[in-house]
Design a protein around this nucleic acid. Structure first.
Length: 961
RNA sequence: GGACGAAUAGCUCAGUUGGUUAGAGCGCCUCGUUUACACCGAGGAGGUCGGGGGUUCGAGCCCCUCUUCGUCCACCA
């Protein structure tokens, strides 16, 4: 049912019909109006776009109609398009970063749908081991309990309840953004199938020899009480003290060795001091001992190349239990490992009675005090060094020796080739280097976490047997047949060891070689959109997981294998959203606006447009609400242009016109003028620009092309220029059709970024029927558009386009002339144009009515170029050169000749400068002989035009006397 | 200590292989209730493209160097 049909209906009918008819401006207004005033009042279109109702209504309709559901079609593999949403923490709430991360995939997905692709955008959440467990434990503490009070099973039960109650809010919030995800395929890393996949990946890697268990130095978080991977440690510069100490040499009483440290509290754990073997200062001491001050014990002086001779005194205290490098030195010299700290970062009994029980930082101060009283402290000086912090708990991590599971990454070479051979492409490309550097220096991945919330490691140990002997282990998806003799590993897997399967498991992957229709159809996925901060944590690991787990086991992969196994083809990295001062947005700073407030204030479309337009390619984004307001303003502009289209058709109601063909049929090519040609040409060009921009992830160009076409070309010029002809019954239908052509195509181009308003207007302007959706309609290509126009008799004329440029420049010059004489507001100006040639004369003549309206003039009289200007109405009147000739503003008697002279003189000087540089350039032999002809021609033309202008202005100045 | 990025109008940024007089939005100034839009329209001011060298007929763009800011990587205690 089209607009024209129900437009005449009584509003009451509309209310009754609202489920079955096309939502339109009018129906919506009728509803709005009905709620505000009596329903008998004639509906009035609101001047400003009110997004909230529109957005809620359309989102529900899309869901009801199953618009976002994607089904594979094995017969049409070329139509596959898939994006996996980077899973937010299940307990997280929407923040600014998510907005951009999800707007871009939505744009890509919606555009793909328009192009007829079977576009899947798969949403989901991450169980977020540490984060979620901490939240639940915090809740427990409120009632005075710990997880140990509950026990593992009960705790997990509580966590599940908590997750189900508070989790997933973020996905609901994403719906407000307009995210067109296939919600039926929503995934979660702790779903039963997903969990099975995670365990299968572990078991597979174990049996392939890539997983081992060992006692190693790991990054220990004393708050979360778990080991962490290197990638979860954030280095931060910290201000502290550097303690310079002296230890007495055992074999040489009275002689001392100077040693520096930042961590005196670990002294009880020292089991040696080390010097560089080639350090002449100390070679004679190697093998001797020093007195460790507390507890007072002799410890050996060893030689190790790891020691930096130039740093401090060149002597290093070796604490194998509390430092990675020291551990290595300890291993090499078979030093005892003395662990003086508890898992929670307090000192234990081995640290001696004074320190035992103290927190590590309090212990540090006390240790320094002890050094002082013992006479070991030479000096303490302020010092800044880098300290590793736990990403989650934000406390310094403690290097700690513990039993952990590690992955030795498979397919590293292939992972590099995936990028270097272009199977996976990063945008911007510069991230390649970061990725490759990481792979080139890759370290084994500590994947066990001493937590309960997560995938429990599928390893059982024979009771009472040595766990490090593989013969005593059962590694499988299911427990051993005689469980009473076995005990399962207590640890769970790193969350990233589940999310690295994010491109596989949600599509149904359960084990290598096995596949599902969805997996077969959409894997490898089309694109991934995420932040560069998780290149290592997630992106690189997903690539490795894909290469290792997709398909049958294969040790070495060919390029074809790689192409088939990579998880995605393109990765778009967006910048991090910062506040206006450039600070990272964070809860503690309170500088992050609530996205839902923004939706409320500016509409989801406005937020999407605004965000996209301020997102520089690959750079961080400085957020400011003003920018978002621009997005809203754009929606409002669009809304009003559509309103104008409706109102302009007062006497000829808009028709339901589904297709370009139907619109074209309403055009009478014979009455199309330069402006019509120009706007249609711009429409075609804009279409091409946008297609290229979207294909290249160039969202800057996408938005600026949208903006430029619609605001500048269409609204500011074309709509204004077409007003007089819309009043004329003979031209009106053609003009309306061209408006429709532009609006229809523009809505299609804008739809991916502003889904709600475009759907609303597409329906209310009658471009499709109620039961179809803009998401399934593809904008014609620029080429096709031109061809269709040509075949309905409207071959776009480049001359006409050039004429419009002249008219626009002429109009600007005329308005400027008026403004300079404080006549801007007047609509009764009298103008005289000395048309510079017959073509200019014709142009000004045929467009006279339009120009008068646009400039605000009652007359523009035309005169031959050679007219004598020394008499009225020319002399003593202000004038300006225009592309069509000299234009005079007839305000005889009121002109301020002094001011006018000043203005013209200024302009003359500007032109003289241009002429000088132009002449210099053209008299440069090298330029003339070497520059390409086009450039040369351009330079000559420019010079002659400038000279002509110069002559004219000179003449005007002389006329002023 | 390495690597990468940034520096263009008061602010935030465009500027695709070097090529006519370097653009946009916001902000600012002047004017405007013209029958879509003041979330608007018209006009205007404002830039030695971070500094210094170099290549070229020609450099915002290419090369070298310096400065400032930012990010990532790294076992100097």
């Amino acid at each position: 049912m089209g607009v024209s049909t129900f437009r005449k209906e009584h509003p009451v009918r509309l209310l009754c019909l609202e489920k079955s008819i096309s939502w339109s401006l009018f129906s919506m207004l009728a509803t709005n109006a009905a709620s505000r005033q009596t329903i008998d009042t004639a509906p009035e279109i609101p001047k400003a776009y009110e997004p909230q109702a529109v957005e809620a209504r359309w989102y529900q309709r899309w869901l009801d109609a199953g618009c976002f559901r994607a089904q594979p079609d094995a017969a049409r593999p070329e139509r596959a398009h898939a994006i996996m949403m980077p899973p937010p923490n299940v307990t997280g709430v929407l923040h600014m970063g998510h907005l951009l991360n999800n707007t871009i995939p939505d744009i890509l997905t919606r555009r793909a749908r328009q192009e007829g692709k079977l576009a899947l955008w798969l949403p989901g959440t991450d169980h977020a081991g540490i984060a979620t467990q901490s939240r639940v434990e915090k809740e427990l503490r409120k009632i005075g309990k710990t997880r140990h009070d509950l026990g593992r099973e009960k705790f997990i039960e509580t966590a599940v309840q908590w997750r189900d109650k508070h989790g997933g809010i973020i996905l609901e919030q994403l719906k407000k953004l307009g995210a067109s995800c296939d919600w039926d395929r929503k995934a979660h890393t702790l779903d039963p199938d997903y969990s099975q996949a995670v365990l299968q990946a572990f078991v597979t890697l174990y049996h392939r020899g890539y997983i081992y268990r060992g006692k190693r130095m790991v990054n220990w978080c004393p708050v979360s009480l778990t080991g962490l991977s290197d990638e979860e440690v954030i280095m931060k510069p910290q201000r502290g003290l550097f303690y310079r100490m002296r230890y007495e040499i055992v074999e040489m009483p009275g002689q001392f060795l100077e040693i520096g440290t930042t961590r005196p509290e670990t002294i009880p754990g020292d089991t040696a001091v080390a010097v560089h073997p080639d350090d002449q200062r100390y070679t004679h001491l190697i093998g001797k001992h020093v007195w460790r001050p507390f507890p007072r014990t002799p410890i050996p002086i060893v030689a190790d190349t790891l020691v930096e001779r130039d740093f401090g005194s060149g002597v290093l205290k070796v604490t194998p239990a509390h430092d990675k490098a020291d551990f290595e030195i300890g291993q090499r010299h078979k030093l005892p490992v003395l662990d003086v700290m508890n898992p929670d970062g307090t000192m234990n009994d081995l640290a001696g009675p004074d320190l035992a029980g103290l927190d590590r930082f309090k212990a540090r101060a006390l240790a320094a005090q002890k050094l002082r009283t013992l006479g070991n402290l030479i000096k303490e000086e302020p010092y800044e060094n880098n300290v590793g912090f736990s990403e989650r708990a934000d406390v310094p991590i403690e290097p700690r020796l513990s039993e952990q599971w590690f992955i030795k990454y498979p397919k590293i070479d292939e992972a590099k080739r995936a990028l270097t051979s272009g199977h996976v492409r990063f945008h911007p490309e510069r991230w390649n280097k970061v990725y490759l550097h990481w792979l080139n220096n890759i370290q084994d991945w500590c994947i066990s976490r001493q937590l309960w919330w997560g995938h429990r490691i599928p390893v059982w140990y024979k009771k009472g047997a040595d766990r490090n002997d593989p013969a005593n282990r059962h590694v499988a998806l299911t427990p051993p047949p005689n469980p009473e003799n076995w005990e399962q590993d207590n640890d769970v897997l790193d969350t990233w060891a589940s999310s690295w399967l994010w491109c596989l498991a949600p599509l149904g992957w359960l084990s290598p070689g096995q596949t599902t229709p969805a997996l077969k159809y959409w894997y490898p996925t089309t694109a991934l959109v995420t932040g560069p901060d998780i290149i290592f944590l997630w992106v690189a690991r997903m690539i490795i997981a894909g290469l290792e787990f997709y398909g049958e086991e294969k040790t070495i992969l060919t390029d074809d294998d790689i192409r088939a196994r990579i998880p995605f083809h393109d990765v778009y990295f967006n910048g991090i959203i910062r506040d206006a001062q450039g600070r990272k947005m964070s809860k503690s700073l309170g500088n992050s606006p609530d996205p839902l407030d923004l939706f409320e204030k500016f509409g989801a479309d406005g937020v999407r447009l605004g965000l996209l337009s301020i997102a520089p390619k690959g750079q961080d984004i400085l957020f400011s609400e003003d920018r978002i307001a621009q997005g809203r303003n754009f929606c409002n502009k669009l809304w009003n242009a559509a309103r104008f289209r409706q109102m302009a058709a007062k006497d000829s109601p808009p028709q339901l016109a589904n297709s370009i063909g139907q619109i074209l049929a309403r055009i009478n090519p014979g009455i199309c003028d330069a402006d019509d040609h120009a706007i249609l040409a711009s429409l075609a060009t804009t279409t091409d620009t946008i297609s290229n921009a979207l294909a290249n992830f160039d969202f800057n160009t996408y938005t600026s092309a949208l903006y430029q076409f619609f605001w500048t070309d269409f609204c500011d010029w074309y709509v204004e220029a077409s007003k007089p002809r819309l009043q004329d019954a003979t031209t009106c239908p053609t003009l309306l059709a061209i408006h429709d052509l532009c609006l229809r195509q523009f809505l299609l181009l804008l739809h991916p970024v502003a889904p709600f308003i475009t759907e609303e207007l597409y329906h209310s302007l009658g471009y499709c029927s109620a039961d179809t959706y803009i998401q399934n309609i593809c904008p014609e290509s620029g080429h096709k558009l031109r061809a269709m126009l040509a075949s309905s008799g409207l071959q776009l004329n480049p001359d006409a386009i050039a004429q419009t440029t002249l008219l626009r420049e002429f109009t600007t010059a005329a308005r400027s002339l008026k403004a300079q004489q404080n006549q801007a507001a007047r609509k009764d100006a009298h103008l005289h144009l000395l048309a510079k040639d017959p073509a200019a004369h014709t142009l000004a003549e045929t467009n006279n009515g339009k120009l008068k309206k646009l400039i605000g003039a009652t007359s523009i009289e035309l005169h031959p170029a050679e007219t004598d200007t020394s008499t009225p109405p020319f002399n003593a009147n202000p004038a300006t050169p225009t592309p069509l000739g000299i234009l005079f503003l007839d305000i005889t008697g009121t002109v301020d000749t002094t001011a006018e002279k000043k203005r013209l003189t200024r302009e003359l000087e500007r032109l003289e400068k241009l002429i000088t540089t132009g002449q210099a350039k053209l008299s440069n032999e090298a330029f003339v002989s070497k520059a390409p002809p086009q450039i040369l021609k351009g330079a000559r033309q420019q010079l002659s035009e400038t000279q002509a202008k110069h002559t004219e202005i000179k003449r005007l100045l002389n006329a002023l006397g």
